[in-house]
Amino acid sequence: MMKFIRSKDTRWLSIWVLSTLAVWIWDIVFLNKPALHKVFNGFFNTFIIAILVVVFTLILGWMVTVLLHALQSRTNRAPYLAVTFLMNLIRSIPQIVGILFAYVGITLLVAGSVITSKALVFIIMAISMSLFIFLELVDLMRDRIDHFTKLDFYSAMRVCGIPERRVVNFDILWKNSRLHIQNKLIAVLGYAVFLQCSVDFIISVGLSTEVNEVTLPTTLGSLLAKIDSKQDILAIGYTLTHPGYTGHLFFEHLQGMTVAFLIVFSLVSIYHIANGYAERHRL
């Protein structure tokens, strides 16, 4: 147990889980049922989508990395250059703009009844977000492959007749980069939560007639943009000049406070977990 707590990553994982549980218990006692239901849904949806983003990022990242590695060694450089060019283009589009447009597209598909299943909406949202994140993982995986191919590691295995796909997939990526990839995926989880909350907040604030919670699932970001949550958040500012009001925050402004806490504390915790993981494994 002490060992578990001594590592920064596992310590922060425990802090995150326990703090979230404590907030839920507090909310069960003091927050009204409909609000509690909404907050729970928002939290659940946010993390389901974020986890799906992580999964799709891994799949996309691994596939593109292996594809690029295969194309790189070909004599015909055109396919390799074309793929890298496309990747650089995706890189040049600010993620938030890309995701915003993807969400608008999803809304149109939902409104036009092209997509009717909620699960499919989740999946398409996650795929569109991972499209703008997966390049980070590709960069990492390609760096790792480059690192090992520069060493004798790669040549020594190849001249023993070990197939290229095994050297790249098993020896380099699985055996020697798994920890790096896991660490990156933890960071991706945090980034997915941040981007999703931000896009949903923007959408709910600015595009309410076009895209709203009727067409997209409720998330922490869209909940925060609701007028009741907004008022709760405004109350924080009020306590800065009226400290005596602080106590009210935890009883009368629970919906907004919970949502803001869940977003910010999750981001901080994921950040510390990723850092701690990197420190523990000296990545």
Binding site: K230, L234, I236, Y238, I263
Partner: peptide, 20 residues
């Protein structure tokens, strides 16, 4: 400080909007 630096901009901005 870390908690503050991790706040999404809109959380900070909405928190202090009435005062500043």
């Amino acid at each position: 400080g870390t908690l503050l630096l991790f706040c999404p901009a809109y959380v900070i901005a909405y928190s202090i909007r009435t005062e500043f």
